[in-house]
Nucleic acid binder design. Structure first.
Lengths: 230, 230
DNA sequence: GCATTGTCCAGACACTACGTCTCGTCTAAG
DNA sequence: CTTAGACGAGACGTAGTGTCTGGACAATGC
């Protein structure tokens, strides 16, 4: 569709993306001139094959971005990754867990929750980054897809909360609470409710496919956080 | 293509729910003493069978609430409704359109957008009703499921916007715009962005399964609408 | 060094739902 | 009475599910 498995500037699964295989190719184990890369081993023996793991993660991610969750199947992931279906089922109970693995990794790197200096400016910056992640970043599609799938399947909802939403919200709560204690902000609602009020509109816009209205994030921050200094 | 998939006389889940068939029962054509109800006709002949249409709508709705969208299949709907699969495919292109039919009907009845008296109080009342609908009403599950499915499937997204989100947002925009012109409210954002900011948190909480924080809706209204009179 | 252990690929398997199709039945319209 | 169209029933090929072989392979441990 777009040639190179999408995401141009996308460093993808981060350090790993560089060695990504092309979409059409026969999997991660690209044949090489043999002479140039003798270090390429077909098997990793007794232990889990790291390159296979990465190939699955990347394949799932790419396929989701390219064709959507609806046509994302384990068989397609296996084909794309050049991996046996059994290899996937050995390590992941479902495709949702695969996506969860990539999402956790990606969002920890792209939109970390500020842990120091709980200033109003940092919160604003965090929300802008989050908005960008969820509306423009291909990796944001994974988040939207998982929010969606959590509506359809109870197991997904459980896992999604336990592995992603819960931990992240805990960090957000801590950030906000410390900012309140520091007198940086003074929301009328509690920390959780305030986060819902801030994040909700961003996610809602992303879910409905409408582009984020200009100034939405800033107005949200200004009106709901009522910063003492602003 | 929807030909006739919309229902004109459909009184919705409301009036009909009473006479609903039991879950385990063998479909809409409940056997009756025969003598008591001679008006029950097995076929409606040349024309579309209204009772079959309603049975499908109810079956889809019930199954969604009971087992979730994930295990909602056309075959299950047909079984539950006591209807042939082909009868469903004759009138609806997909299960999504069935749900869309029920959602449009239900939300028009339960949470109509106030068309008169664009007061701040009416807007607040509308949002409270919407929040209740989406968090407590079984019919609200249909809305959440369709928002979710729109992430997975492009056709669903298109149809969902065209048939539900678009028209409703138009009415909401009109409500807000008139309230602004009347000096009832004075949001810092435009009408659409303001609606996103108000509705977003409610939907987000519903999607994440967290109960609506106390006072969220009121605080949203107070802080974002900045009513001239409040 | 050699058997053990566990991963990997390949593909078969029964199962389920899909959406299409054909059949025969039935009823209201003409 | 004829006929058109909806309906129930169910067969059909396709596709993905998750499980379960088999055989090849490499790291580990004795």
């Amino acid at each position: 569709m777009d040639g190179m498995s999408g995401r141009s500037g996308w460093t993808g699964r981060l350090g790993i993306a560089a060695g990504r295989s092309a979409p059409g190719a026969g999997g991660y184990r690209a044949r090489m001139p043999a002479a140039s890369s003798p270090s390429r081993r077909p098997h990793s023996g007794n232990r889990r094959d790291e390159s296979a793991r990465l190939a699955v993660l990347h394949a799932a991610d790419d396929l989701l971005v390219e064709h959507g969750f609806g046509s994302l199947t384990v068989e397609a992931i296996a084909r794309r990754a050049g991996v046996a279906k059994q290899t996937i089922y050995r390590w992941w109970p479902s495709k949702v867990e695969i996506l969860l693995d990539t999402l956790i990794e990606d969002s920890d790197k792209r939109i970390p929750v500020p842990a120091e200096k709980p200033t109003a400016a940092n919160i604003r910056r965090y929300l802008r980054g989050f908005a960008r992640f969820v509306t423009r970043d291909p990796a944001g599609k994974v988040l939207l897809a998982l929010i969606a799938e959590a509506q359809h399947d109870a197991d997904t909802a459980t896992s999604f909360h336990k592995r992603y939403l819960g931990p992240r919200r805990a960090r957000e709560r801590e950030m906000l609470t410390r900012a309140i204690e520091a007198g940086e902000v003074a929301p009328r609602l509690g920390a959780d409710a305030t986060m819902d009020a801030l994040v909700g509109p961003i996610v809602y816009c992303a879910l409905t496919g409408s582009s984020l209205p200009r100034g939405l994030v800033d107005t949200l921050v200004d009106d709901l956080l009522r910063p003492a200094t602003d």
